[in-house]
Amino acid sequence: MALSAANTSNASHTSATAELRQLLSSTLRITVVDGRIFLGSFIGTDQPMNILLTDTEEYRIESSEAGKNDREESSSTSGRFVGQILIPWKIIQKIEVQEPVQPQPSARTQSGYDGHVM
Protein backbone atom coordinates (compact mmCIF):
# COMPACT_ATOMS: atom_id res chain seq x y z
CA MET A 1 0.00 0.00 0.00
CA ALA A 2 1.50 3.27 -1.07
CA LEU A 3 -0.01 5.25 1.75
CA SER A 4 2.46 5.16 4.56
CA ALA A 5 1.53 5.34 8.19
CA ALA A 6 3.33 7.96 10.14
CA ASN A 7 2.70 10.49 12.78
CA THR A 8 0.47 13.19 11.42
CA SER A 9 2.21 15.72 13.59
CA ASN A 10 5.26 15.37 11.39
CA ALA A 11 3.59 17.31 8.65
CA SER A 12 4.68 20.85 8.67
CA HIS A 13 1.94 23.34 9.15
CA THR A 14 2.66 25.63 6.27
CA SER A 15 -0.08 27.15 4.22
CA ALA A 16 -0.70 24.45 1.58
CA THR A 17 -0.70 21.65 4.17
CA ALA A 18 -2.98 23.67 6.39
CA GLU A 19 -5.27 24.25 3.46
CA LEU A 20 -5.15 20.52 2.72
CA ARG A 21 -6.23 19.82 6.30
CA GLN A 22 -9.19 22.10 5.80
CA LEU A 23 -10.27 19.80 2.98
CA LEU A 24 -10.45 16.69 5.18
CA SER A 25 -13.94 15.14 5.31
CA SER A 26 -15.02 17.29 2.36
CA THR A 27 -16.45 15.77 -0.77
CA LEU A 28 -13.80 15.58 -3.46
CA ARG A 29 -14.36 15.07 -7.15
CA ILE A 30 -11.27 13.48 -8.65
CA THR A 31 -10.89 13.02 -12.39
CA VAL A 32 -8.41 10.36 -13.47
CA VAL A 33 -6.62 9.93 -16.76
CA ASP A 34 -8.94 7.27 -18.17
CA GLY A 35 -11.89 9.64 -17.92
CA ARG A 36 -13.50 8.29 -14.78
CA ILE A 37 -14.64 10.61 -12.03
CA PHE A 38 -14.69 9.61 -8.39
CA LEU A 39 -16.91 11.39 -5.93
CA GLY A 40 -16.16 10.60 -2.32
CA SER A 41 -15.29 11.86 1.10
CA PHE A 42 -11.60 12.78 1.56
CA ILE A 43 -10.14 10.96 4.56
CA GLY A 44 -6.41 11.22 4.07
CA THR A 45 -3.32 11.36 1.94
CA ASP A 46 0.41 10.81 2.25
CA GLN A 47 3.33 12.82 0.97
CA PRO A 48 3.33 11.22 -2.55
CA MET A 49 -0.38 12.17 -2.68
CA ASN A 50 -2.03 8.78 -2.66
CA ILE A 51 -5.49 10.05 -1.89
CA LEU A 52 -7.94 8.04 0.18
CA LEU A 53 -11.65 8.52 -0.40
CA THR A 54 -14.46 6.79 1.39
CA ASP A 55 -18.12 6.21 0.39
CA THR A 56 -17.06 6.75 -3.16
CA GLU A 57 -19.12 6.60 -6.33
CA GLU A 58 -17.46 5.99 -9.66
CA TYR A 59 -18.74 7.82 -12.74
CA ARG A 60 -17.70 7.27 -16.29
CA ILE A 61 -17.90 10.09 -18.75
CA GLU A 62 -17.78 8.80 -22.29
CA SER A 63 -15.38 10.23 -24.83
CA SER A 64 -16.94 12.53 -27.43
CA GLU A 65 -17.07 9.59 -29.88
CA ALA A 66 -19.05 7.39 -27.56
CA GLY A 67 -20.90 10.35 -26.16
CA LYS A 68 -22.77 10.86 -29.38
CA ASN A 69 -25.30 8.48 -28.08
CA ASP A 70 -27.52 10.23 -25.59
CA ARG A 71 -28.72 6.99 -24.01
CA GLU A 72 -25.18 5.80 -23.50
CA GLU A 73 -24.19 9.07 -21.94
CA SER A 74 -27.13 9.23 -19.60
CA SER A 75 -26.50 5.73 -18.32
CA SER A 76 -22.81 6.29 -17.83
CA THR A 77 -23.44 9.25 -15.59
CA SER A 78 -25.22 7.13 -13.01
CA GLY A 79 -22.47 6.19 -10.62
CA ARG A 80 -21.55 2.84 -9.20
CA PHE A 81 -20.59 2.47 -5.59
CA VAL A 82 -16.96 1.53 -5.11
CA GLY A 83 -16.61 2.22 -1.38
CA GLN A 84 -13.18 3.04 0.00
CA ILE A 85 -10.55 3.71 -2.62
CA LEU A 86 -7.01 4.97 -2.95
CA ILE A 87 -6.12 7.07 -5.99
CA PRO A 88 -2.43 7.46 -6.77
CA TRP A 89 -1.25 10.91 -7.82
CA LYS A 90 0.18 9.64 -11.11
CA ILE A 91 -3.28 8.96 -12.56
CA ILE A 92 -4.98 12.06 -11.21
CA GLN A 93 -5.95 14.72 -13.71
CA LYS A 94 -7.93 17.08 -11.55
CA ILE A 95 -9.07 17.37 -7.95
CA GLU A 96 -12.04 19.49 -7.01
CA VAL A 97 -13.69 20.14 -3.70
CA GLN A 98 -17.35 20.72 -3.16
CA GLU A 99 -18.02 24.19 -1.90
CA PRO A 100 -20.12 24.36 1.21
CA VAL A 101 -23.67 25.27 0.33
CA GLN A 102 -24.33 28.93 1.10
CA PRO A 103 -27.66 29.53 2.74
CA GLN A 104 -30.04 31.34 0.40
CA PRO A 105 -30.49 34.90 1.53
CA SER A 106 -33.94 35.19 2.96
CA ALA A 107 -36.34 37.91 2.02
CA ARG A 108 -35.80 39.62 5.37
CA THR A 109 -32.09 40.20 4.73
CA GLN A 110 -32.54 41.41 1.17
CA SER A 111 -31.72 45.02 0.62
CA GLY A 112 -34.74 47.03 -0.16
CA TYR A 113 -36.93 45.12 2.20
CA ASP A 114 -38.57 47.76 4.22
CA GLY A 115 -39.94 45.63 6.96
CA HIS A 116 -43.53 46.28 6.15
CA VAL A 117 -45.80 43.33 6.23
CA MET A 118 -47.91 43.10 3.15
Binding site: L3, S4, A5, A6, N7, T8, N10, A11, S12, T14, A16, T17, E19, L20, R21, L23, L24, L28, I43, G44, T45, D46, Q47, P48, M49, I51, L52, W89, I92, K94, I95, E96, V97
Partner: peptide
Protein backbone atom coordinates in the same frame (compact mmCIF):
# COMPACT_ATOMS: atom_id res chain seq x y z
CA UNK B 1 -7.88 22.25 -5.64
CA UNK B 2 -5.35 20.24 -7.65
CA UNK B 3 -2.72 22.89 -6.98
CA UNK B 4 -3.30 22.69 -3.22
CA UNK B 5 -2.49 19.00 -3.28
CA UNK B 6 0.59 19.54 -5.50
CA UNK B 7 1.96 22.24 -3.18
CA UNK B 8 1.18 20.23 -0.04
CA UNK B 9 3.09 17.29 -1.47
CA UNK B 10 6.16 19.50 -1.78
CA UNK B 11 5.79 20.78 1.76
CA UNK B 12 5.13 17.50 3.51
CA UNK B 13 7.94 15.40 4.91
CA UNK B 14 8.40 11.93 3.40
CA UNK B 15 6.50 9.44 5.56
CA UNK B 16 4.04 11.98 6.91
CA UNK B 17 0.34 11.90 6.32
CA UNK B 18 -2.60 14.20 6.53
CA UNK B 19 -5.67 12.34 7.65
Amino acid sequence: VTRVFALASQEMEPGSIVA
